[in-house]
Design a protein around this nucleic acid. Structure first.
Length: 257
DNA sequence: ATGCCAGCTACAAGCTGA
């Protein structure tokens, strides 16, 4: 079973690239982020024609998350991260697919730091850590996949010294990520590539992709019961080098269930 | 230190992203 995450940076502009990638790689489950589209603007018919059922949570202009499943419709178990009824940003959606609980997330960027946006990111992380703990305690086979907007370690950024004050790399954020790992979650991509320089995002500026000036910020965390089943974890890096790409590349894992 | 690019909204230029 292949499970992928892909920050599309606008489903409206990225639909052709998404459909091409789906056709080529046929993942079983896909978490999408940054739809940047109203609920009614999601291209449900085109996704269905590609062979995928979908659930999604749209929002005008910003954010927006979806879960696709090949040959079936994901069984939704939640939308919106629990813990704050005032939070109306579309950043979390959850579903069951083939007995696996899939959480798709788009964590707040948090820049500039310090400031209200960084505070929101830290609050969101607190709620996410609580929810992740509940999932661990439930014993569910679970995958938390998405754009975490967290650079976990110095190995995950091309020039760490330039990012020390950035909201993606601040100590509070890295500590929060480590807290998730301490709960028992496994960073699938890093576990399969312990020493490799491996990125999932390259910004559009200064030929960042050509220079390989990237970040590793898109992650798939898998629950302890799934770690023995993890067969592969990779970045579809070439997708970032195509025409009209997202600034993120798709990331995926293969589970042998 | 700043803008560099790109998408969205709305139709100009501003906001946001990471």
């Amino acid at each position: 079973m292949r499970i992928a995450t892909y920050n599309v940076n606008g489903i409206g502009s990225r639909l052709p690239a998404l459909l091409q990638w789906l056709d080529e790689t046929q993942p079983d489950v896909v978490c999408l982020q940054e739809l940047k589209a109203l609920q009614e603007k999601f291209p449900e018919a085109a996704i269905k024609d590609a062979g995928y059922g979908a659930i999604w949570h749209g929002q005008k202009s910003w954010n927006g998350v979806a879960i696709l499943a090949r040959g079936q419709t994901p069984i939704e178990t939640g939308r919106g991260l629990p813990g704050d009824p005032e939070d109306n940003q579309s950043r979390y959606i959850e579903a069951m697919v083939n007995g696996i609980l899939i959480g798709g997330l788009y964590l707040p960027n948090g820049n500039p730091a310090p400031g209200p946006k960084f505070d929101y990111k830290l609050k969101w992380l607190e709620r996410f850590i609580l929810h992740a703990e509940k999932l661990i305690d439930s014993g569910a086979a679970a995958v938390l996949a998405g754009d975490y907007n967290i650079i976990p370690t110095e190995k995950d950024v091309y020039k760490p010294e330039r990012w020390v004050d950035d909201a993606l790399f601040r100590p509070e954020v890295r500590v929060a990520y480590q807290t998730l790992l301490n709960q028992g979650w496994c960073d699938a991509l890093r576990s399969k590539h312990p020493d490799e320089t491996i990125y999932t995002f390259w910004d559009y500026f200064r030929n960042a992709y050509g220079r390989d000036a990237g970040l590793r910020i898109d992650h798939l965390l898998i629950s302890p019961s799934l770690t023995p089943a993890l067969k592969a974890a990779e970045v579809d890096r070439a997708v970032r080098g195509r025409e009209k790409p997202s600034d993120h590349a798709p990331v995926w894992i293969e589970l042998n269930l």
